[in-house]
Structure formats: C-alpha cells, structure tokens
C-alpha cells in the first residue's frame, strides 16, 4: 500500500466523520442532501459484500465496516433523528436518473458476469455520481455551510489521491483496474468546479 492510497483513505474517512460530527453537534442536517447519503450507503453496501467472501487485510476489513456503519448512521441522522431539520424541498434530484443508467451500465460493462462482480461494478459507477444530488442542492439554494464545503473538499481530495495511487500502482505493480480508473476520473471531474469555488470563495 502506498502513501497516496493511505492518505486517500484517511481523507475519505475524515470527510465522513466531518459530516457526521457536523450533524450531531449542530443537531441539524440543513444543507445536506439525504439522497447523496443514501447513495453512498448503497455504494458501500453493494461494494463491501466481499467482506463475507474475501479477506484482504485487517485494515481493509476494519475500514469497510467503519465506512458502512458511518454511512448508515448518517442516513439515520438525516431521515430519523434530525428529520425536522432536513431540507427535503431542495433535495429534489431525481435518483432514477442516476440509478437506471448506472444499473444498466454495470450489467453491460463489468469484469465478469457474476452477481458479486456486477454489484461491485454497480457500486463503482454509482459512487462516481453519488455526490451529484448534493452538488445539485448547493447550486439550487446557492449556499453551503463552511463545514459542508470542508466535507466536499475532503471527498474530492480522496478521489484525487486515489488517482495518484493508481498512477503509482500502474508504474510499480503494473496494476490497473480500468472500470475503477475511468469511473474515478469521471468522479474527480465533478469535484473540479467545486474545488475552484472552494479556493476562490475561500479568499473572499
């Protein structure tokens, strides 16, 4: 495991914890897209089914469990505990526009046509677009709390670091996973506009 991969995982974890702490401490999920969080819970669920079939390392298992638990706690906070503060009016992205093409594509373009592999592919494609309801919500309301922008910054940083990890792995191990790399690059592009705003607005 290389430094980019570790830092990528750490910033992913940091993003998830920042969001969860923001909700718990402020007792509010205002400005947070519940739909994006449902999609991330679905991403982890469909990707980490290999927890039951394939042991990689203690690190790998622990991180998977932590991501899964955090994702479900976040969804619970938004839709149950702090439901009253949830801005469902502005969380109006149509999920079927993402789920239908992603499902179709995961059946068409995968490494092998087996249930687990199709679900893994589905999770990779879905992750690449899961943040869109959140970005849509921000562009609709025209505002985002600072803490929400920090969350998005660390999520974007995680994606950028994973690309560096893949470049590293390609050169050192001759390893690359085309599905993960293409989706990962697409996903990172979605954050570019946000990164630009994060830097320029941060200066104002």
């Amino acid at each position: 495991m290389n430094i980019f991969r570790i830092l990528g995982d750490v910033s992913h974890l940091l993003a998830i914890i920042i969001l969860l702490l923001k909700i718990v401490k402020s007792k509010s999920c205002a400005g947070i897209s519940g739909k994006s969080q449902i999609l991330f819970a679905l991403v982890f669920t469909t990707r980490y089914l290999d927890l039951f079939t394939n042991f990689i390392s203690v690190y790998n298992t622990v991180m998977k469990v932590v991501f899964l638990v955090c994702a479900y706690i976040t969804v619970y906070m938004i839709y149950v505990k702090f439901r009253k503060t949830f801005d469902s009016e502005n969380d109006s992205f149509r999920l079927e526009f993402l789920l239908v093409p992603v499902t179709g594509l995961s059946f068409l373009e995968n490494h092998s046509f087996t249930p687990l592999e199709i679900l893994w592919t589905f999770s990779i494609y879905l992750e690449s677009v899961a943040i869109l309801p959140q970005l849509f919500m921000i562009s609709k309301t025209g505002e985002a709390e600072t803490i929400t922008t920090h969350y998005l910054f660390f999520l974007g940083l995680y994606r950028a670091l994973y690309i560096a990890n893949w470049v590293w792995r390609y050169h050192t191990e001759n390893f690359y996973d085309q599905i993960a790399v293409v989706s990962g690059v697409v996903q990172t592009i979605f954050y570019c506009d946000f990164f630009y705003l994060y830097v320029t607005k941060g200066r104002q």
């Binding site: 995982d9 394939n54 990689i56 991180m63 996973d177 085309q178």
Partner: peptide, 10 residues
C-alpha cells in the same frame, strides 16, 4: 480482461 480480480481497494 482481468477475471477473478481481487478488489483490494476501498
């Protein structure tokens, strides 16, 4: 293609 690929990333 990379069949039987082990997904070791998160």
């Amino acid at each position: 293609s990379q069949k039987g690929l082990k997904h070791d990333e998160l």
